[in-house]
């Protein structure tokens, strides 16, 4: 039985903000199924009482000293932007007109 269906892959693509083509959906569905069946092997390990590891280094909040340092200028920050207007990032509309 397949671990993941074509419809589920279409849903994942939407969540991932990827406008995939119909042909890609066919290909990815098959490939992701193979990969998921292989990685599902982690379920064979009895690990109910084992704590999870997110990082090999113990994580604590790291704060630098509260002193003023240089940061990017506005020009530098905007230099790589695909579209700029009035010294700001210009973006397409975010809300629907009807909304």
């Amino acid at each position: 039985m397949a671990a993941i269906s074509r419809d589920e892959v279409a849903h994942l693509a939407r969540l991932s903000r990827l406008a995939v083509t119909e042909q890609e959906l066919d290909t990815f569905a098959g490939q992701l199924d193979v990969i998921l069946q292989a990685v599902a092997r982690v379920g064979e390990v009895a690990a109910a009482d084992i704590p999870p590891t997110s990082h090999s280094v113990p994580l604590t909040n790291v704060l630098r000293e509260d002193v003023v340092i240089n940061c990017l200028t506005r020009e530098e920050a905007l230099a790589g932007a695909p579209d700029v207007e009035e010294d700001r990032f210009r973006v397409p509309r975010i809300l629907d007109e009807e909304a």
Partner: peptide, 17 residues
């Protein structure tokens, strides 16, 4: 969709899953 290659898309979707 235009900027990422197939392997990157696979991994993004796998991770999202």
């Amino acid at each position: 969709e235009a900027g990422f290659g197939a392997e990157v898309k696979r991994r993004i979707m796998l991770g999202t899953y």
